Amino acid sequence: MLQFMEQHPGLARGRLLGPAGRARANELWEEMATVLNSCGNGPMRPAHKWQKVWQDWKCNIKKKYIRIKAHRSATGSGSPLTSELNPLEERLIFFLTPEGVQGDANLVEAGPPPREEEIDRGDEVEVTEVPDPVDDEADYGGVEAEAVTRRGQGRKLVASFVGVEEKRLDLERRKLEVDERKLQVEERKLELEERKLEVKVKKQKSFERIVQLLESGLELLEEHLQK
């Protein structure tokens, strides 16, 4: 895969733009999928899956390289990390260059001078040269320090966001507790109303029973008087 990308740096760096460039990129992804699937000792994937594999691998190695450089800078090249780059990963990093690994939008992912770089301008495709990578440790150290600072700011932002979310959840929990108490009060009121209704029903039945007894007594009295 890396060898194919080295042969087609425009595809690797996402510089095949415009209708003609996108068509060329699709052709190259299909060509790479055919090459990789024909190896016989690996998985079979469609072109879009191989594209995802390339993006994930490149991103993971970039992050690994940045961690290694940050560790060396923080420890003064002291204790090494247990996960160093293997030869294939070092080859990928050289292809991308430290500037590209750092992920600065103003810097170009460069590598060994490509055979040709396709840049789409409307319907015209022109060839341009890409400069050789320059490993300037002093400049990169500054970029690296800036990256560490950004990561620290990102952690603070995440912590702040988590704190706000915890407060919001706490308010929601308290609101639910208040609603539950209100519901309990309403249920008690309903129970009292039901009991009152039961008492009224019992009184009504008792009154009806008394009326029935009185009517029966009057009937008996009338019969007795008639005799």
Rank of each mutant, 00 (worst) to 15 (best):
F95Y: 07
R67F: 04
P46W: 06
S38I: 09
I66W: 02
C39P: 01
Q51H: 12
Q51S: 08
K58A: 08
T82P: 04
L88D: 12
N37M: 08
A70Q: 10
A74P: 00
L36D: 09
F95K: 01
S38D: 14
N86T: 08
R91F: 14
S73G: 02
P43C: 13
K64N: 01
N41T: 13
V35G: 04
K64Q: 08
E84S: 11
K69T: 03
I68P: 01
G78R: 01
R45T: 03
L36K: 03
N41C: 12
V53I: 12
C39S: 14
K64R: 06
R67Q: 12
I93H: 00
K58V: 07
H48W: 11
G78A: 04
L92G: 01
N60R: 15
V53T: 10
H48R: 06
S77V: 05
P46L: 04
K63C: 10
P46E: 09
W50S: 03
L96A: 09
E90F: 10
P43A: 15
L36F: 13
T75E: 11
R91L: 13
H48I: 13
S73E: 07
I66H: 00
N86K: 11
I93D: 00
P87C: 07
N37G: 10
Q51K: 15
L85S: 02
H71E: 05
L96W: 09
K64L: 04
E90M: 14
R72D: 10
Q51A: 08
L85A: 02
P80R: 03
G78Y: 02
L85M: 04
P87L: 11
A70S: 08
F94S: 13
I61P: 00
P80W: 06
L81E: 05
P43S: 14
M44V: 15
L96K: 04
F95A: 03
A47S: 08
N41D: 13
L92I: 11
F95W: 03
P80H: 05
P46D: 11
K58R: 04
I93Q: 02
T97G: 12
R67E: 15
L36V: 09
P46H: 08
W54N: 03
A74N: 05
H48V: 09
R45C: 07
E89Y: 03
I93S: 01
M44Q: 14
K63G: 07
A47C: 07
K49Q: 13
S79H: 05
L85P: 01
K49T: 07
L36E: 15
F95T: 00
R45P: 00
A74E: 07
K52F: 14
P87K: 12
L96G: 05
S83W: 09
T75I: 04
P46V: 07
L85Y: 00
A74I: 06
I66C: 06
Y65N: 03
C39E: 13
W57Y: 14
L85T: 01
G76K: 03
Y65H: 05
Q51R: 15
T97A: 15
L88A: 14
H71S: 06
W50P: 03
E89Q: 09
S38W: 06
H48T: 07
G78V: 01
Y65W: 15
G42Y: 09
T82N: 05
E84M: 14
S73W: 11
Q55H: 12
P80S: 05
S79M: 07
T97D: 15
C59F: 14
L88Q: 07
I68L: 15
T97N: 15
I68N: 03
L88P: 00
T82Y: 11
I66P: 00
